[in-house]
Design a protein around this nucleic acid. Structure first.
Lengths: 207, 207
DNA sequence: TAATTTTTCAATAGGTCTATCGAAAAATAA
DNA sequence: TTATTTTTCGATAGACCTATTGAAAAATTA
């Protein structure tokens, strides 16, 4: 009964991976709070209520844990943006969706997102390649929405698309740091404000 | 000759403070590059070519060094913004100047600015009070430019001034991280883009 | 139940870090 | 020059940190 055997093995693997997820979740939480270098493996273990050495059953090194957190935080990110860009929607709508897609993880996986934004730079260069490539691809895709808008003559010819892309993404990325301030915004409000400000501007025009 | 004595003492103090500035500059540089927790006092000493223990003649603790860097990085910041807000210029010009004022340190004291933006959160709570208060005051002043614009009916009534302030400052603060990317922007270009995008929007209107 | 596998643990090697101390060196003053 | 002050240094205490190891505990299977 090879099937039964495989299923048993698969169940064990699944159980292991569930626990591993808990461990990486704890790592993400501690990295987000204290920063990568400010966080110790002892902190992560304390959060789980286990011994520090037990962590190494689930990751080989602190570096690897950070890499895993960063990879998980961007899982499906490019693909979702690709789907938006390829969709038959208007450029304005694509931009609004791209912004919302970008800040979605703030709500769903805040500790992962925070770690990715703030701690990626501490990932050793050898481990950063894949992520860097992904970011470049993502930025290019984001920028394409803007250049398309200019080509369609709905956005100004004077728009610096690359710079604007960097500015839009900066707004998205930073919101993780103040989304919980006294004013208490939700991600839809933030996304709409970023898009409205960028597309329409603050100035009243007499049409 | 009490005057001669005082002058001699003053010269010594001045010499000490010049050296202290070199030490804090080195600290800012290392903090900016490696992050507060990733940087060691040994790294700072190495940058100066002196022994690690010699640093403690110029600061009492690594914490204090970080506090000094953060305080220096924001020296005169609020005052300059106050001068802009109080000036008789148009609200649009005030906003453009506020943005330029905000990112000026990226050019003049990049290591200090970078440390302030990225490492302030690691300053122990006890040392952070003064800076937190200053930031609150600064943000309120920045927001006032926007609320004034709305009151004057030149900015849309629908503008969320607090949120927009946070978004504008996010753009300014993040630019330190990509200003040296392949595209090589200067601070005037960045400031103008942030202001143009915000004030006028990207969309072409048929007037 | 007993045997086997998975998971956790205590102990620790080997390294790094901050901050202190008294002494040495360098600079300045007498 | 000699005396005094300022600056730097080497050595180090005491703490913390990562990662390894072999054994214990817990869970699973037979």
């Amino acid at each position: 009964m090879p099937d039964g055997h495989l299923t048993k093995q698969a169940r064990k693997k699944e159980k292991y991976e569930r626990r591993q997820t808990e461990v990486i979740d704890a790592a993400a939480s501690v990295f987000a709070e204290k920063g990568y270098h400010g966080a110790s493996t002892g902190d992560i273990a304390a959060k789980l209520g286990i011994a520090q050495s037990s962590l190494y059953y689930y990751f080989k090194s602190k570096d690897e844990a950070l890499e895993t957190v960063c990879l998980k935080s961007t899982k499906g990110y490019v693909e979702r943006l690709q789907a938006i860009v390829r969709s038959p929607k208007s450029t304005d709508d694509k931009l609004r969706e791209a912004i919302l897609n970008h800040i979605q993880p703030i709500k769903t996986i805040p500790n992962y997102f925070r770690t990715f934004i703030g701690e990626l730079r501490y990932l050793p260069i050898g481990r950063r390649k894949k992520l860097s490539k992904m970011i470049t691809e993502y930025n290019a895709l984001f920028e394409k929405v803007l250049t398309d808008g200019v080509a369609e003559k709905i956005y100004k010819k004077s728009l610096d698309c690359h710079l604007s892309m960097l500015l839009l993404i900066s707004q998205c990325n930073m919101s993780i740091f103040w989304i919980n301030d006294p004013h208490g915004y939700d991600i839809d409000t933030i996304a709409a404000s970023i898009a409205d400000n960028f597309l329409l501007g603050a100035t009243i025009r007499n049409t």
